[in-house]
């Protein structure tokens, strides 16, 4: 579904990614792992149009999306969450989720100012869908809260609700359980499992190995901007290169 071919990114001559190629198959969960500074976030940003790769191509459903700006990539059906939450703190929880449906709200400013009946009708439909999404993440009782005052775990769930409300074809999750305690991690993990069984294709960037091993169908390992291994969680776990990049370094710093 999503295909990266020889993607490279240099920041002022420093290579952050070099010749990364892999594929995210439809309906499966692909996990992207790697030590800090391996280039995971750069890779996500190159995929979503926030950054342009220096070299290589990114294609989504056989369509080349390498040079597209971020909002057009989003409109093709790729939704994402952010490593450091990017909720809109002053909007209510419901409105935050509704922003996930921006592409479907109609984009004509003039029409919006006149608030014609068909727009009102559409608005009601969008609200219903947003409430359903909040229900799925058991947040409906906080729908009219300003998002800024929620607890961290709740914010993470609002972000997941916002990213999934439009039923995107591909979901990019940048460290969904970072900063959560064990209980909250289990909760988000449960939600990710539900999303997977609902048939969502996901690319998951994650440090939490237990979670990755449990829900990923395929694991891609990045180290210093290079893709050093691809395979099932079992294969990757036994791969000596991965062990060296991960555990070796961890032992060295420990």
């Amino acid at each position: 579904m999503l295909k990266l071919e020889n993607v490279s990114k240099n920041f002022g001559g420093l290579p952050a990614l070099s010749d990364v190629s892999f594929e995210v198959p439809q309906g499966l969960v692909t996990a992207l792992i790697g030590p800090n500074g391996a280039g995971k976030s750069t890779l996500i940003n190159c995929t979503t149009g926030v950054l342009q790769p220096s070299k290589g191509t990114v294609s989504f459903q056989q369509k080349k999306i390498t040079a597209l700006p971020a909002h057009q990539v989003a409109r093709l059906g790729i939704a994402r969450t952010f490593q450091n939450l990017k909720l809109f703190p002053r909007l209510t929880v419901l409105d935050n989720v509704l922003t996930g449906l921006t592409c479907e709200g109609g984009s004509s400013m003039l029409m919006a100012m006149l608030r014609l009946p068909y727009l009102r009708h559409r608005e009601r439909q969008l609200k219903l869908r947003a409430m359903e999404a909040l229900d799925r993440f058991s947040l409906s009782d906080k729908a009219d809260w300003p998002a800024g005052i929620l607890a961290y775990g709740d914010k993470k769930r609002v972000e997941l609700a916002r990213a999934t409300v439009s039923q995107p074809d591909l979901l990019l999750l940048d460290e969904p359980v970072a900063g959560l305690n064990a209980e909250e991690t289990a909760e988000v993990g449960e939600q990710l499992r539900l999303l997977r069984s609902a048939g969502h294709t996901m690319l998951l960037v994650e440090h939490d190995m237990d979670l990755v091993m449990e829900i990923a169908d395929q694991v891609v390992v990045l180290d210093s901007g290079k893709c050093i291994a691809t395979g099932t969680p079992e294969e990757v776990r036994r791969n000596p290169l991965v062990l060296e990049a991960y555990l070796g370094r961890m032992e060295a710093t420990a």
Partner: peptide, 22 residues
């Protein structure tokens, strides 16, 4: 109160996030 308005509110909140929402 429209989708356009929420898009603008998103823009005020965070440009990267707004772009990622389309």
């Amino acid at each position: 109160r429209s989708g356009v308005g929420r898009g603008l509110a998103a823009l005020a909140g965070d440009e990267t996030a707004a772009a990622a929402l389309g």
